[in-house]
Design a protein around this nucleic acid. Structure first.
Length: 210
DNA sequence: TGACCGATGAAT
DNA sequence: TTCATCGGTCAT
């Protein structure tokens, strides 16, 4: 279950912001280690904060579920070739924005897909964006949390090293990590059954367990 | 320029 | 389990 824990204030969150060397590594390491961290978006004098509870690793060139399989380059996926630490955002099903963090070194595409958050601060603003009243369904899916945060095409290529949009390290992680197949990539052949999805065991905001 | 489609969500 | 949905992508 989701345990009560003290919520760091904005200043504290900023202090433990994840840096470039954290993102400039392989996608599996980042996808695992970013679990439990805080995604922080400052809007004026308000702050939206969600704990990252579910991720997927996309391994770039050698991963036929990735948008950069076999080194494919298009206007959309171009930022995936940047050094880790920028956002890769794209639209799916004509209506939902998917948010990834680019990882690895420049020229080596990789990404960590953020699938679900546990909402911690700014829930009133999130609910206005999502038009839902039930907190359980506010941010427990890739298209849901991005809508709650107002994430869209404007975020494509945006740096996570800024002062108003970043990931903050959680210094007290006590959970167990679950591992499963990635979702919605049945079009892939070689990579479809790899267990590259990671989630916080028992957290109610994970989009699905199996 | 336009055919095509999906790293989903919601209803059942 | 099914299916509505539509802006963007990319090949032409």
């Amino acid at each position: 279950m989701s345990q009560k824990e003290s919520m760091p204030d904005f200043k504290e969150l900023k202090k433990f912001k994840r840096k470039g060397n954290f993102y400039a590594r392989d996608s599996v390491s980042v996808a695992r280690e970013i679990l439990g961290d805080y995604l922080v978006l400052r809007k004026g004098n308000r702050t939206l904060v969600g704990k990252i509870v579910e991720t997927e690793a996309y391994r770039g060139r050698g991963d036929d579920a990735s948008h950069t399989f076999a080194g494919k380059v298009t206007p959309r996926n171009r930022v995936m070739y940047e050094r880790g630490g920028v956002a890769y955002v794209y639209l799916i099903y004509g209506m939902w924005w998917c948010f990834n963090i680019v990882v690895s070194s420049k020229g080596d595409p990789g990404a960590v897909f953020i699938r679900a958050l546990e909402p911690l601060e700014g829930m009133d603003l999130m609910m206005k964006k999502r038009k839902v009243r039930d907190i359980k369904t506010l941010t427990n899916g890739p298209g849901r949390w991005t809508r709650a945060f107002g994430i869209d095409k404007k975020f494509l290529g945006r740096s996570l090293h800024s002062g108003d949009f970043f990931v903050s390290r959680n210094l007290s992680k006590t959970f167990k990590v679950g591992r499963a197949k990635r979702i919605g990539i049945d079009y892939a052949t070689d990579s479809r059954d790899l267990k590259l999805r990671f989630y916080i065991k028992g957290n109610p905001f994970v989009s699905r367990v199996t």
